[in-house]
Amino acid sequence: MSETTQFRVLDFDCPTCASTVERALQNAAGVERVEVHYATGRVEIEYDTTVVDPETFAQTIEQQGYTPQRA
């Protein structure tokens, strides 16, 4: 089953920062589609619920050095 979740990252300080997080999420297990927007700080992830828990996405974002908020 695939589902969509959203986060809000308010501390992107450059467009590359957003691309980096996007790449990192793309490479995470169970992720089907990722959108990360520098302009609004919106992160949208479509993922397979049987493979991954959305909490791990928050950890991935933190690991890259940014602060995710639940949208």
Partner: peptide, 12 residues
Amino acid sequence: YHEVRNRTLGIK
């Protein structure tokens, strides 16, 4: 480091 790892070389 994460920019390099994700091949999104940038300002950092």
